[in-house]
Design a protein around this nucleic acid. Structure first.
Lengths: 211, 211
DNA sequence: CAGCGGGTTGACTGACCAGTCAATCCGCAC
DNA sequence: GTGCGGATTGACTGGTCAGTCAACCCGCTG
């Protein structure tokens, strides 16, 4: 271990980030000390401050790197010419798969940033709201096309969608809900179904009659 | 002020609790010091420790007093012989009205406890899960009656419901959504509509085609 | 092989704040 | 008016870490 670390050369920065994910996920950002990160990374305490200005900046980096990927992915999904339902499914899919691919990182992002309304969610408010805005935009467009009814404001629908996803992820993170590939696939469909079901224009009758 | 405080006699404990709500809501639990609570309450530092064992216990008290009222209210709603939709509306109503009645207290409960997955939500996990369980129970019963379809597990539906409410409250708390009596009434209806719409038996598309 | 400079080390410091405690106050009972 | 006891006061202590810094290591260049 120590040998391979030494052999790997200048990638200590990445080792620190990886270690931070582990200890933040395990004990939480506030409960763990900078020395815990350094120990986990097999690196001296001071090196953390060589690569990062502060403990906060370590978490900021983890969050921003991942969140920007998320925003890009949603933007790309948004540009496609596919039905709303598929767009929302693709978004839910991306997020759920992110969790499947790296549960610890997603746990840290959700628990320590997204849900930490009084600390990191404040400093990254713009990024988080951007996420909400993109979803609201999709809902808004669906309303313009007559696919979604207009009684629900896009902002509101976006928050309900985000709230449902976040809570379900929290359920997996803390073991309140059963995990597994089948559950993940089901969840994607169900979140979309739950939200779209309440938003799609006037159930069947009206549109059926119109056609 | 100081005079009235002195005149009021032995209700210093309540003054401390009230002050705690104000400063916790303003600066957040971790960012404020015990001396801030004492100052806000016009009371000496040490008195906080006469009535409470620790800073944590102050927040615990605020949370538990209110949460137990919430659980009682839901239990009573649950016992009524009314349709699911009305039950869920009554629950959403109670929570939204709690926020309308005392926004600061609800802010503290949601931001510092409910959403604080790594600190207070851990110590009060039982109480929080009890809330989820009561809602899952209502969903489960609706499924048994055939009002809700069975594809969605009760636990999952409960989390989606709770997630939507929590996120909307967060939206109000941080000013992302417009506040006001009209908005509150609309929100109650819309949260229920959004969730029930996705859960009520026989969604439009499939059945429409079948017919 | 001298010595430059970025990478790396870990002991130390300074600030912060929850919680303690000895002293004081004051209403009331006798 | 004496003294008991709970309420109230606020200066002080102890422990905890984030962040600093002076020194060391080592590959590379000229």
């Amino acid at each position: 271990m120590a040998a391979s670390a030494r052999a790997s050369g200048g990638d200590k920065r990445q080792m620190i980030l990886d270690a931070a994910v582990v200890v933040f996920a395990q004990r939480g950002f506030h409960a763990c000390r900078v020395s815990d990160i350094a120990d986990e990374a097999n690196v001296a305490y001071g090196l953390v401050y060589h690569y990062f200005r502060s403990k906060d900046e370590v978490l900021d980096t983890l969050f921003l790197d991942r969140w920007n990927i998320l925003l890009d992915a949603i933007s790309q999904i948004d540009e496609k010419q596919i039905p709303v339902r598929e767009k929302l499914h693709a978004i839910a899919s991306f997020i759920v798969d992110s969790y499947r691919h790296d549960p610890d990182l997603m746990k840290v992002i959700i628990v320590e940033v997204t849900r930490a309304a009084n600390s990191f969610a404040r400093t990254h408010l713009g990024k988080i709201r951007e996420f909400h805005r993109l979803i609201a935009e999709i809902v808004s467009q669906a309303q313009a096309e007559g696919v979604f009814k207009r009684e629900v404001t896009p902002d509101f629908a976006a928050l309900a969608f985000v709230g449902a996803i976040e809570q379900v992820l929290t359920g997996w993170i803390f073991g309140w809900l059963p995990r597994g590939d089948a559950e993940y696939e089901q969840a994607k469909a169900l979140i979309v179904e739950t939200i779209c079901g309440g938003l799609e224009a006037a159930a069947a009758p009206a549109s059926a009659r119109a056609v």
